[in-house]
Amino acid sequence: MDTELILRVYPFFLQAAVVTIQLSILTTILGLTCGALGAAARMSRSWVLRAIGATYVSIFRGTPALIQLFILYFGGPQIGIQLDAFEAGVIGLGVNIGAYMAETMRGAIESVDKGQREAARTMGLSRAQAMRKVILPQAMRLMIRPLGVNINALIKGTALVAAISVVELTYTAQRYIGSTYKPFEMFLLSGALYMIIIYVVGIGIAWLDRKARIT
């Protein structure tokens, strides 16, 4: 293994890791937003909203994320959507992971004991009041870990945007392989950086989960 090469190029990989982190953060924010809207739609009383929610989830979970990215980035200009690679990456991945997060959130909300809703409603609370004050506070706690799994998948999923030439960790590895012919070292280096990011995020999720545990 060429350690000298690794020491020479790693600062560029650190810069790329920053891009991966930015992508991950923005994608998480967009994903949580789409997830919350998707979950709300899927549990709505209006069948139109329920149908929209179900369609959203089945389209984005039912096709490869890479195809979704390609349609947005390469196909977008044909229908008047001009995005740079980074923007397309965030939107493509965020809307995609949002479909998974919608199901995670819906699952957590539905797994709150139905006696909780009944108790709240029998006292005269409206559906919305019961949701806000009784169901959601409990569901939020239940969804931290499974959303952590979604976020873990999303961080690794950011590697896909290398295919639309966003200069993040995977793309950077490929670029340096082109000039050094050392794929083992280059992929190992980017892999290690992914692992560090995921490890730190994992600690954060575990901390949140512990803190939110019902006393």
Partner: peptide
């Protein structure tokens, strides 16, 4: 219904206290 339920107290077999 939300209005009339305010006048009817209900106690359940499994208590259904809010754990949070």
């Amino acid at each position: 219904v939300n209005q009339v339920r305010q006048d009817i107290g209900m106690v359940f077999q499994h208590f259904n206290l809010f754990p949070h």
